[in-house]
Amino acid sequence: MKMQRFVQKLLALLLQCVVGVEILIFVTVLPVLFNHLSFHFSDFLQAIYHLNVKVATFGDFFTEDQKNSLFPVIFIKYWDSMKMLILGVLAAMVIAFAISYLALLFFKDRLKQLKNLLEIAESIPDLMLILLLQLFVIVVYKQTGIKLAQVVTVREEAILLPVICLSVPISFYITKVMIHYIEEELEKPYILLAKAKGLPFAYILNIHVLRNIADSMFGTSKTILWSMLSTLLVIDYLFNMNGLLRIMLTAADPFFIGCILIFIPFFLMFRIFEWISFSSRKEIQ
């Protein structure tokens, strides 16, 4: 019985992946439809068919110049970009944790102002923040001669500044969400019990609250990763890094493969998370 349900779920997952790939094919071929701003419907259908055949037979996908095969190259770029993304997520989490802990432990009566501030900071377009950060590093270097970070990848790879730029814009959002969840959690009765037992506030925060908000925090990961990916694109351009997202914009084939490389792993991750998450476990019980 259990086995059957598992197989059913697996099949559904596979079907969903296939549907997702079809949608991506549709998007990839869309420029054909609007070529020169008039409708080319038969061309469009034909292009969809060709791309489908290409995917089904594992045909050759080419880079921009239509000669070199895409395949070993794009995986290297993919790995580079994902490394960046993982580092960025970690850095953003660290920043968000630091801010919300500091706020809750020391500035509890100023929380409202902090939330307003975060709301405003979050609204600033990430591109602007990145440009300002980069300018800041340059100005510091010009004034004092201290090179805070490598600004552009020329020979040695710039790592520190891109990661900071990737994580700072999104960390405002994460902080806001985290403070909100922690506040919500702090109103629950078990916190009162813990306080009555005489446990210190830091202990309650670390042990009880943190465990209970982890699930909700993972729930927001979709939004976070989604907006981080678009920030990553800007960073690819600005720091002259040849990441995945930059090569995706050169031609249709890289775009399609890149979309699949982004979509399928994240999709599987979200689904698996949904299965094992606390709320779904609770529902089954």
Binding site: I23, L24, L37, L225, L233, M248, C259, F263
Partner: peptide, 23 residues
Amino acid sequence: KMIFEPFSVVPQTIIAYFILYSV
């Protein structure tokens, strides 16, 4: 919801750039 799933994973900027570039 499943059909719309790719749009919540692949960033808007990339899709928009790709479609708009030729025009």
